[in-house]
């Protein structure tokens, strides 16, 4: 079996990702279309939330992936720091805008849902606040990559920022357990059947979660390929200038 570290070779990564990308993209499109149509058109209203329950199919997968995207960036950053594999640093860079958009979707859909249900789109609740801070960390992370000219220094600095931001990623996941006085309700998903959302909402939600996971994978692979090409472009231009 091929070692995971083989994919640290840009050429190997480009070849493998080219073969995998169409399948992952197709899975993302299929799951998102099926899940969102199922959730929007074919699920009943909730007896308390009315039709706003349909927002769950966007809010929960986006929030889940917003946190997991940052954790993926953390793993990639640690690989960069420890083993200095450029592909892992570029994968972290490629994932940041995707994670930022997922965080924005979670914040936006939460606010739209909160207005009729809580009577306010925003509250300085622990989970909401930690999510807003996570969003700001995403922006800061992307800005830092752009601000530093030397790509290796940029990768070093953003790795440190990623490590610090991970605290907020973890807090946004577990804020409900730390502080239970917040406005945000308990987790919608649970392994305990009695705590979990009803099956009629659960199955389309699962398909939407799969759709967001595949979309994240497809976008990260695609964008990492772009970053590898951009790095090569920069290196060739620098070589041309020296000769």
């Amino acid at each position: 079996m091929a070692s995971l570290w083989e994919y640290a070779n840009p050429r190997k990564f480009m070849n493998t990702s080219a073969a995998v990308l169409p399948w992952v993209s197709a899975a993302a499109a299929l799951c998102l279309v099926v899940g969102l149509i199922w959730g929007f058109f074919f699920t009943p209203d909730d007896f308390r939330q009315g039709s706003t329950v349909k927002i769950i199919y966007l809010h929960v997968p986006a929030a889940l992936m917003a946190i997991n995207a940052w954790l993926m960036m953390l793993v990639a950053s640690l690989i960069w720091v420890i083993r200095r594999h450029h592909v892992s640093a570029l994968a972290a860079k490629a994932a940041a805008p995707v994670g930022m958009v997922f965080t924005l979707i979670a914040l936006y859909t939460g606010a739209v849902w909160g207005q009729p249900m809580w009577g306010t789109p925003w509250e300085w609740d622990p989970r909401l606040t930690s999510f807003l801070i996570l969003f700001l960390f995403y922006l800061g992370y992307m800005a830092l990559w752009e601000a530093v000219d030397n790509p290796d220094s940029a990768a070093d600095l953003t790795s440190v920022l990623c490590l610090v931001g991970s605290v907020f990623a973890i807090i946004s996941r577990y804020a409900l357990l730390f502080w239970n006085q917040g406005l945000h309700q308990g987790a919608s998903l649970s392994l305990d059947a009695e705590q979990n959302v009803a099956d009629v909402f659960w199955y389309p939600l699962l398909v939407c979660i799969a759709g967001f996971v595949f979309l994240f994978l497809a976008l990260v692979l695609y964008r990492t390929r772009t970053e590898i090409r951009a790095r090569r472009l920069k290196a060739l231009i620098a070589q041309e200038r020296m000769t």
């Binding site: 039709s51 936006y108 739209v112 207005q115 009729p116």
Partner: peptide, 18 residues
């Protein structure tokens, strides 16, 4: 029902961002 605006805003905005 009465939450049509909120649901459509959530779907429209999120799909636009994606």
């Amino acid at each position: 029902g009465r939450y049509a605006t909120e649901v459509l805003m959530a779907y429209g905005g999120s799909i636009a961002l994606l």
